[in-house]
Design a binder for these strands. Structure first.
Lengths: 351, 351
DNA sequence: TTGTAAGCGTTATCAT
DNA sequence: ATGATAACGCTTACAA
């Protein structure tokens, strides 16, 4: 900002037109349909565009085209800043992908918890966004129906559990991911494979658990006693994990519904002087920084792909009930030392 | 989206004008300078505004006012999705505060690491943002100088280390925070207070360490041997912490430059059957979900305040060299069981 | 291939 | 207190 009091004036389409000795329409064509411009003119104009650093004003373009070129994303306290949150990574991916076709992501926070759609209403009414990316979808979520009723485009990261006919979503296949984890652990030689999940009732949690049930049944390893539940907090997770670890014993393995729960299990192992992998197999979900830091095998959500497909759904202005919609992507199992029975990870010992 | 193929047409200022039998200028006045409108007209127009759900189009307003009403925020891989990252929380706070005066935050990612200012250039050139919020400032950061040279408003979360005359920043006072932590530990009765920090050379790390040096000197507890360094990764942090814990012994305490480093120390304690707090005091920095999960005392960064002040700096279109600028906010020490010598936290024991 | 005209929705200025 | 006019910068349709 140095000394001048107002920001530098930026070149407009007229400046370029004047400099290149053409009409402003021609400049517009150079930018938007270069193939309709004679090569010589094209180059002359492009040179001036570069020289002047011209970029079309988004405001003017938006006004004319009656679209914002932006998608709203609610930053819910549920999804951000919590243990094992992955939404920050999703935001990064979404932002990067949106930029490819010149769109933007506009984050916003809910203002009134009583009226969850108010912020959505304001943003479309003022044409700041063309539509929304939903996250943290839940049963009884009022947003999809409201958006549908108001004819507002949207796509969700997470299944829309209420209405199977709405297919404007992309999600990660938790069940098949957990299944893969169980098979991986079995292949590594772990014989008793338990599951630490969230209390029944959450769609995501129930889905993940079903993968464990399916895989252990398939392998003839099913045992309902090797299951425990805990909310997403360290203390209860530790207690639940402790019980499971007792039941499974050395040589057993534990699949956790989240990295946060796995932290509880890891803590118990650490306190008992047990090494993840060597003494007890451990695989978790989400592959957050925690899993990476603790070197835990984890199911990595393909967030870049999710972002890509979410934007695709938004881009194709087909109905939210497109029967081809509803995409389930498999997570990728990242194998680390915690599921390696020959675990060779060393830890500092007392002097 | 149901069946119709285009989104619903939103009411414009003309619709309201027609419905309320006034000119569109009067509607504009009702919205922007209600005091200049006769009470009866005011009410009539406001009723129509509500009835039609009218909101001024941002694109039109932006075009007319030649400002975007938005601030750009680069999502750097450095700041997001890493262990102990707090930028996601900062983004939430920034977004919420910006909304108060109708502004938005537009996140973006760098496209070319070789040309770090390219994305900035594009965003201002197309008038998507009026300026920027900088994070992850570092020595030799090319952005402040570039923004200054191009007369683009900005404010940084984090000191601008290169040029003390640039004061468009807000930061958290790491040194005084650590100092407070040391005093707190001393007051709790811990006698030997060590420090686990990052290798010398990072301005943030050096700043934090200086707080430890200052406080321990002041208290007559200085001992250069009670210091160790490690990069922000679990394995090296554990090794460094192990050495320190040996040197400090029971009844000592450890201040860590970050929650990530503290995780390493916590792990060592766990493996040795020691309880944070009761056996060894532990205080860390950032108060991320990890500190909360492990019940570690931690220095909480006042991100809401930082966001508030950053927007204030951007709002007042004073120069970036305003001598009144450069605000250092104290972090708040959140005391948990890890700095309580009478530590009463129970952990699940083996059956 | 290039240029002309109109309009997107708003607000600042000036007149009534 | 209210309204007419012009302008912000761009694109779409149409005319040359």
């Amino acid at each position: 900002m140095t000394t001048s009091s107002s920001p530098a004036r930026r070149a407009t389409i007229v400046d370029v037109a004047r400099a290149a000795q053409v009409s402003r329409q021609t400049v517009s064509n150079v930018v938007n349909s270069p193939e309709r411009v004679a090569p010589s003119t094209l180059e002359r104009v492009q040179t001036e565009i570069r020289r002047l650093g011209f970029q079309p004003s988004r405001a003017a373009r938006n006004l004319k085209q009656e679209r914002a070129g932006a998608w709203g994303l609610e930053l819910s306290p549920l999804g951000f800043g919590r243990l094992g949150a992955i939404l920050d990574t999703f935001l990064v991916e979404l932002t990067a992908r949106a930029a490819v076709d010149g769109s933007h992501v506009v984050p916003f926070t809910a203002t009134d918890p009583e009226a969850p759609t108010d912020s959505y209403e304001r943003l479309v009414a003022s044409r700041v966004v063309d539509g929304f990316v939903l996250t943290d979808t839940r049963r009884g979520d009022p947003r999809p129906a409201w958006l549908d009723a108001h004819d507002i485009p949207y796509a969700a990261f997470g299944r829309l559990w209420d209405d199977p006919s709405i297919t404007a979503w992309v999600d990660v296949d938790g069940a098949s991911g957990i299944e893969a984890a169980v098979h991986h652990l079995a292949a590594q030689g772990y014989e008793r494979i338990g599951y630490l999940g969230w209390p029944e009732g959450s769609p995501v949690g129930d889905d993940r658990r079903s993968g464990w049930v399916r895989a252990t049944t398939e392998l003839g390893l099913a045992n309902p006693e090797w299951q425990a539940v805990s909310p997403q907090a360290l203390e209860p997770a530790s207690w639940a994990a402790a019980g499971l670890i007792d039941a499974l014993g050395r040589g057993g393995a534990l699949v956790c519904a989240s990295d946060g729960l796995a932290l509880g299990a890891w803590r118990v192992l650490a306190e008992r002087g047990l090494t993840p992998g060597a003494d007890l197999g451990l695989v978790c979900f989400d592959d957050t920084d925690i899993a990476q830091a603790l070197d835990l095998s984890s199911l990595h959500q393909p967030l870049a792909q999710v972002a890509d497909r979410v934007l695709h759904v938004l881009g194709t202005r087909s109905a939210s009930r497109d029967p081809a919609g509803g995409l389930l992507l498999p997570p990728e199992l990242v194998v680390r030392s915690s599921s390696n029975p020959a675990g060779d990870r060393t830890t500092p010992k007392e002097k």
